[in-house]
Design a binder for these strands. Sequence first.
DNA 1: CTGTTAGCGCCTTCAG
DNA 2: CTGAAGGCGCTAACAG
Lengths: 400, 400
Amino acid sequence: MRGDKSTDADGGTAGSGAAGSAGGPAPVTLREVAREAGVSYATASRALNGSDRTVREENAARVREAAARLGYLPYLPAQAVARGFSSTAALVVADMDDPYFASIAVGVVDAAEEAGLIVTMAVADRTPELEVQLVHKLRGHRPQVIIVAGSRIEGPQDALVAELEAYRSAGGRVALISQEGLPFPTVPIDNYGGARALARTLVDLGRDGFGIVHSGDRIHTSRDRRQGFTDGLREAGLEPVLIEEAFSRDGGRRAGRSLHPEVRTVFAVNDVMAIGVSSGLREAGRVPGAEVAVAGFDDVEEARYATPALTTVRVPLREIGRLALRIALDPGGDTAGAGVRGSAGGGGRDSVRDGAWVSPKGAARVPPEGAAGAVVRVPPEVVVRDSTPGRSACGGSASG
Amino acid sequence: MRGDKSTDADGGTAGSGAAGSAGGPAPVTLREVAREAGVSYATASRALNGSDRTVREENAARVREAAARLGYLPYLPAQAVARGFSSTAALVVADMDDPYFASIAVGVVDAAEEAGLIVTMAVADRTPELEVQLVHKLRGHRPQVIIVAGSRIEGPQDALVAELEAYRSAGGRVALISQEGLPFPTVPIDNYGGARALARTLVDLGRDGFGIVHSGDRIHTSRDRRQGFTDGLREAGLEPVLIEEAFSRDGGRRAGRSLHPEVRTVFAVNDVMAIGVSSGLREAGRVPGAEVAVAGFDDVEEARYATPALTTVRVPLREIGRLALRIALDPGGDTAGAGVRGSAGGGGRDSVRDGAWVSPKGAARVPPEGAAGAVVRVPPEVVVRDSTPGRSACGGSASG
DNA sequence: CTGTTAGCGCCTTCAG
DNA sequence: CTGAAGGCGCTAACAG
């Protein structure tokens, strides 16, 4: 919440005070404020919103005072019409009930707030078609930026790209989260590298009998994580058993319920599924953590309180959300790496893959507006917890 | 997504096609569409948005066709200015990272989508002052409705009420979630009744040695649940031990870590805290579920996968979110009870309190307006799970 | 049915 | 530094 350039007049508190008549008092308009303050309409405008403030302090004060007294509230839609752009940021997420997206949303909303924007949000329900329709609809509000955080699914993305391209060519800024390969600034998540590092860490800890619960290669996130983990394993000469299930808690649960007896270490492609796996294992009478270790990916808060606590790869979701808004607002800015502290933990080297991604198509058509394929890497970090060998799922080790 | 009254022109896919020049082609305006279609500006408007469609089908078709071809997109802010009200719904939640609010948000967004509104959202971070500021800020967009879902905290609510009152007196509609006592339509949650029923259920199951982990009476939700549970216990002649901690996972964890040894059944005021309690118990070397049963409130998805699965009180969060939007849009409508199935569980009587509160003033230029204090009860439902007596925290009972 | 013409609330040159 | 006037894109009477 930066204080400068504030457009607020009445300190954030209601001020319709007087309002004697009861019949839907038309909201106070800037014109009234001007009259009340004894200055011109234009002056009032300048005093309250000042693109380049050039108004005698005395008058400015009078205007502010009048505005406060009348409870004036700038009519944002009107401002948008006059200025040509609104003060909103649009966000499309795949599923708000998933803590992964919820955290990203928090980050976006937070950063937007700081930038003086309010966010309009839509939930695409993990359906590509709906997603396109939503950005289209959102576009009507002429947001200053559009951020799309969906689980990218295999298939033609032409519609989405076209929609976004159209938006950008009209002056809008877009940012994507974890869906590289599209000609827009993206906050990537190193799914491959993180998963690979995780695999190596587990191998180093002496685990074996690996299994991967994933959701098929059509879902990019799943594919990359599966791939990374597999490669990490292969470097140690190991080969995992693959189990495919839905990208959800329940999918994980089903997988856990019928997990092959020889799998003693299972990596679920995300924390939510991993938690489901643990649950499923228990339903099958097995003990997750001791008998079979389970690891996930994301380090969602929930995972830290699960039993056994998940070994996972930390992904700074909130920061990623913030970052998305920032790179959208200021592509090519000094945003790179900003706000993402945290060591590389166990992730270590090769955390950074090919950073540079070059815009393939269309980008030529659309000039400046900042680089189109900006990529800011967020380093993954392996977090080892309870599910490692010697620990039991039940009795905690603490104090005892 | 209802199809009628659609304002969309180009089937949801981008259409900036032609656009030869590359320098930020000004978005297509309605005027251009009109010219392109060979009709007047007004006719084009009517054809595409038609409040009361009265345009020869032939022309209408031409307009639609032209709109599609040019990739016309109605400029919502302009529409808002012209119409006097925008097509947005504002939502203020206390903490998006909490699954409780995330689910509510999903419901709101969903219902908004159905009503043709897009939601603008803000996170109040559980801070009353911020909450007021946010609704104030949001008000600037002239949303058609404002929904506030915060954890009500003891203290003067004058600022919030004033802000909301001002909004409403200007024709806006507001709906609150789980914070009765304020002069606005509210979707209540029977915290007291649900907790009391839960207590009785646990007593009936033979549990004893009760403890309540709550967050102090300043937080209404905590207070009501604690109160209800306590009363339920007293009916059986029992008295609980009280532990006060922060309203979060971590607060619960701390409570669990130092839980009095004699407490063998603990009720945490919400699922998230309950999960924390389980976690804390383990850290202290105790086994939640077997040695000490833990119950929560909300029936958040996460709770169903926790270990041990939580005995809890189901609250249809999503439905509640939907309902909030509906009663805001149509107070006094037939919304009562709609969409909320599920038995009354044990909540029982006193579920319905004083409903009527009469609307003072009238709407400005915005559509009708109904009752202002509508209250729709959502019946709580006790869900008994693993944490009951005989079960172990580890080995599942299933199959094996 | 259709076109013309005012605004909606605000910002912004453009003169004073 | 200030006021007057035009315009943003769209809707809504009001004539034809």
